[in-house]
Simulated assay, not measured.
Amino acid sequence: MTEQMRALVCIGVTDAFFAAGADERALVFHATKDAFAGMSERFGVTVLGTFDDDTLQIGPSHAFPWTCYLLLDVPDYESVRAIANVFRETEVGAHRMWHYYKVEARLGRPLFFGED
């Protein structure tokens, strides 16, 4: 029996994003949306939920609390690694996406209560 795995992808916005002009920030938004389109099909994950704290948190996120989160059911470690690689590989203008974001992923399992 294989134990179900969950991933919590924690995403912070860096100083570089806030230092960028409006056109560059718009480019980052569009590139991010495109880069993560079709996550379920591309990475074999199930998106259980998303959370964006950008209305109450202002400025860069260097650690917890993060700006936004993805909660995923994942088939394996490699699927989470592939999602993290999107930040490493996606070009946004003169930079890669990781220039604008800090990312940490946590792997775990479903909690034994609270999902009824």
Results as ranks from 00 to 15, higher is better:
residue 103 V to W: 01
residue 74 V to F: 05
residue 92 V to H: 02
residue 79 S to C: 06
residue 94 A to Q: 00
residue 108 G to Q: 03
residue 59 G to Y: 03
residue 26 A to V: 14
residue 32 T to H: 15
residue 106 R to Q: 08
residue 32 T to L: 09
residue 91 E to L: 01
residue 49 G to L: 10
residue 101 Y to C: 01
residue 25 R to P: 04
residue 95 H to G: 10
residue 37 A to M: 05
residue 91 E to W: 10
residue 69 Y to A: 14
residue 112 F to T: 11
residue 18 F to E: 12
residue 23 D to H: 13
residue 65 P to A: 09
residue 107 L to E: 09
residue 92 V to N: 08
residue 4 Q to E: 14
residue 91 E to I: 03
residue 9 V to N: 00
residue 39 M to Y: 06
residue 16 A to N: 13
residue 114 G to V: 04
residue 88 R to N: 12
residue 72 L to E: 11
residue 107 L to R: 01
residue 115 E to K: 08
residue 42 R to D: 00
residue 101 Y to T: 00
residue 110 P to I: 12
residue 28 V to P: 11
residue 12 G to Y: 02
residue 53 D to I: 12
residue 114 G to N: 08
residue 48 L to G: 05
residue 67 T to Q: 13
residue 7 A to K: 01
residue 58 I to V: 15
residue 60 P to W: 14
residue 97 M to A: 08
residue 110 P to N: 00
residue 102 K to G: 03
residue 41 E to S: 13
residue 83 I to S: 01
residue 72 L to Y: 00
residue 34 D to G: 00
residue 36 F to Y: 08
residue 103 V to A: 02
residue 110 P to M: 11
residue 100 Y to A: 10
residue 34 D to V: 01
residue 31 A to C: 04
residue 70 L to K: 06
residue 81 R to Y: 07
residue 70 L to F: 00
residue 26 A to S: 15
residue 5 M to F: 07
residue 109 R to T: 14
residue 31 A to P: 06
residue 51 F to R: 14
residue 77 Y to L: 10
residue 30 H to Q: 13
residue 50 T to K: 13
residue 79 S to K: 07
residue 13 V to N: 09
residue 11 I to A: 00
residue 69 Y to P: 10
residue 91 E to M: 14
residue 16 A to K: 12
residue 6 R to E: 11
residue 30 H to S: 11
residue 30 H to G: 09
residue 51 F to W: 15
residue 75 P to E: 02
residue 114 G to S: 01
residue 60 P to E: 13
residue 71 L to I: 11
residue 56 L to G: 15
residue 26 A to L: 12
residue 107 L to H: 06
residue 49 G to P: 04
residue 88 R to E: 04
residue 52 D to P: 07
residue 6 R to Y: 12
residue 83 I to P: 06
residue 16 A to D: 11
residue 100 Y to K: 03
residue 85 N to K: 01
residue 13 V to A: 03
residue 104 E to D: 06
residue 57 Q to I: 14
residue 92 V to I: 01
residue 82 A to F: 08
residue 65 P to N: 05
residue 35 A to R: 09
residue 51 F to K: 14
residue 67 T to Y: 08
residue 32 T to I: 04
residue 22 A to V: 11
residue 61 S to P: 14
residue 13 V to C: 13
residue 59 G to R: 04
residue 67 T to V: 01
residue 3 E to I: 01
residue 29 F to K: 14
residue 98 W to N: 02
residue 8 L to S: 04
residue 5 M to H: 12
residue 56 L to N: 09
residue 93 G to K: 03
residue 48 L to C: 12
residue 31 A to K: 08
residue 112 F to Q: 09
residue 57 Q to Y: 14
residue 44 G to W: 10
residue 7 A to W: 06
residue 111 L to N: 02
residue 77 Y to D: 11
residue 30 H to T: 11
residue 99 H to F: 00
residue 102 K to S: 05
residue 2 T to W: 11
residue 3 E to L: 09
residue 75 P to V: 04
residue 65 P to G: 04
residue 15 D to K: 15
residue 49 G to E: 09
residue 81 R to C: 09
residue 40 S to E: 15
residue 55 T to R: 13
residue 70 L to C: 00
residue 76 D to T: 06
residue 66 W to C: 07
residue 48 L to P: 10
residue 3 E to P: 02
residue 103 V to G: 05
residue 30 H to L: 11
residue 15 D to P: 08
residue 70 L to Y: 02
residue 62 H to F: 05
residue 59 G to D: 02
residue 56 L to F: 12
residue 62 H to Y: 07
residue 11 I to W: 10
residue 54 D to H: 15
residue 55 T to D: 12
residue 9 V to M: 06
residue 77 Y to M: 10
